[in-house]
């Protein structure tokens, strides 16, 4: 059977009813979302189902939307079916006050490091992760740098004397 986006969508709706929503096909890539409590169930279904077999986790990352109340943090999964070479994007949203979602490490070994990275930058806690600690930033850091409340320094500011970096100071 040749897997198409329509078949995947149909199968998901058959299994999860109206709990899976937001189906879209930007540039041919099926994308949808589910409540965060269901993330493992959806991933497991996509992994196990004989027709779907999405067994390759290409990417797992987070996005911060500070203006979406109760849905501030998104976790985005990109899954790949290697046999049929079809991909999809699956999203869950969580509130920033309780950023807790279930871990996918039992399904994909690569989720271990990817979830650590997402925790490192967004503070999303993956329940059941065997070793949830920072991976790229220093352990002592007490904030999550990719959240939107931490803007980058304005590159045009002139009040700072950074002679050490060859800008400003007396020599320029």
């Amino acid at each position: 059977m040749i897997l198409t986006n329509e078949i995947i969508q149909q199968k998901l709706i058959e299994k999860f009813g109206n709990q899976v929503s937001g189906f879209d096909e930007p540039y041919g890539l099926l994308s949808f979302e589910a409540p965060k409590e269901l993330n493992l169930k959806v991933l497991q279904f996509l992994y196990d189902d004989a027709d779907l077999q999405f067994q390759f986790l290409t990417d797992l990352t987070g996005v911060h939307y500070p203006h979406q109340i109760e849905r501030e943090l998104a976790v985005v999964y990109h899954l790949h079916n290697l046999k049929q070479n079809i991909r999809l994007r699956f999203k869950i949203y969580t509130a920033i006050e309780a950023p807790e979602v279930f871990t996918a490490t039992q399904l994909f070994s690569t989720a271990n490091w990817m979830e650590r990275e997402t925790f490192d930058f967004f503070g999303i806690k993956f329940i059941g992760h065997p070793n949830l600690k920072r991976i790229l930033n220093v352990d002592e850091m007490d904030y999550f740098p990719l959240r939107k409340e931490y803007p980058l320094e304005d590159q045009t500011r002139i009040d700072k004397d950074d002679e050490m970096f060859g800008r400003g100071g007396t020599n320029s």
């Binding site: 990417d59 990352t61 996005v63 985005v76 990109h78 070994s109 490091w113 990275e117 990719l146």
Partner: peptide
Amino acid sequence: YIVSEGAAQPYRIKYRSPGFSNLS
């Protein structure tokens, strides 16, 4: 992976780097 809100800068960008997964 680019998330765009329609501005001249990306809202969020993520690079899926091959070495990261290979090293794991």
